[in-house]
Design a protein around this nucleic acid. Structure first.
Lengths: 204, 204
DNA sequence: GTCTATAGCCAGATAGAC
DNA sequence: GTCTATCTGGCTATAGAC
């Protein structure tokens, strides 16, 4: 069993770079700070990753590839609508409580560089909207849920799950919650969010 | 009546700085780029605003002060819950379609500098959660809406309205929408969002 | 692989003429 | 108020010893 100290230099760099880039973004991050964080010499960063840009891309792609497959289960998996909503909300919130800076980091850099998305998404299993659209249409027709566009429902699911992490400082300010109180609200959202969505779309 | 060209140098700088900072963020922005955008000499930036930091703060506070009062109407205004949800969703989405980079800019910088919030919010009319909490409790007691915590409802309202702008590149990638198609979805959200929320909380 | 030293560049800020 | 020229510091990246 490995201790933390037994990580290779390359791994230490990647972990440190992750922390710094997530906090400061590409342009705000400093190679020296990453080196300090990793407790290694600055020139080793270049030895292993050649340039800041390449190190950044390694970090970004790793981060994005943790997020995208989770979202993709909404679009392409054989769960029922209700299961998708419940499972995604629970799993995503659980995961993000452990990595709260991840959504902000990814969306920040995607907004700076929007054409990046295509490259990232098209390289993976192509997330077609078709299956999900059909699933929603069928459920509407069968009278299981009220009429709603698949795209709008999809946006709503993402919004309710992702925003609480990106908007944390703003929300905390308005509701005047401490970090601890806010964490409790997030914990409750593991079930709160799916209840909210299902209540909105189900026919009674 | 003034033409655009009749703006003072100070105004031209502020407008240009707004555009550049919103796109690049504090650390990514360049004073030279702001000067070019404003079509003035770079040293005038320092003449009017002393430093990049002060120019940034001027831009940021202006932006934040456009956003905060809108949010505050949810917490403190004498509208009914239903009116609040409908009006806020419609007004906010309409406004943000005209300023799509604003939410990302503000949340980005708040995440980098979370203690900034206190300073910004406490200087305005103090947005107490109390009124809104009471309003929700009353509505629940009167059987108008199902049981829900005011904080969670507040987060949901913000999430559904704000996220579509911050998450645009990500969403566009997943649902494979062009800019034009996405704009249409946003237009629909002016009423879609409030329907979604009200459907979730109203008792039938 | 890991270090020190430094090249080379670029950005923010200022001096000073007009 | 507006310009040109320049200082100064900090940052990425590399050269080269070990």
């Amino acid at each position: 069993m490995n201790k933390i100290k037994d990580l290779t230099a390359e791994e230490k760099i990647l972990n440190a770079a992750k922390r710094v880039f997530e906090n400061k973004g590409m342009s705000g991050a400093r190679m020296q700070e990453i080196a300090d964080e990793a407790k290694i010499n600055k020139s080793l960063l270049h030895y292993y990753y050649r340039s800041k840009q390449l190190l950044f891309e390694a970090v970004f792609k790793t981060a994005f590839n943790k997020l995208a497959p989770q979202i993709n289960t909404i679009l392409n998996s054989d769960q029922s609508i209700c299961e998708k909503i419940k499972n995604f909300s629970h799993n995503y919130t659980t995961f993000m409580i452990k990595h709260p800076y991840l959504p902000n980091f990814i969306l920040q850099e995607l907004n700076r560089n929007p054409e990046f998305v295509k490259e990232l998404i098209s390289s993976k299993t192509f997330p077609s909207m078709k299956n999900f659209q059909q699933q929603i249409r069928d459920a509407v027709k069968e009278g299981k849920i009220r009429s709603i566009k698949a795209e709008q429902l999809f946006i709503n699911i993402l919004a309710l799950n992702i925003f609480p992490f990106i908007g944390a400082p703003l929300i905390k300010g308005f509701i005047n919650a401490s970090d601890k109180e806010y964490l409790l609200l997030l914990e409750q959202r593991k079930t709160e969010v799916s209840d909210f969505i299902i209540n909105s779309i189900k026919l009674k």
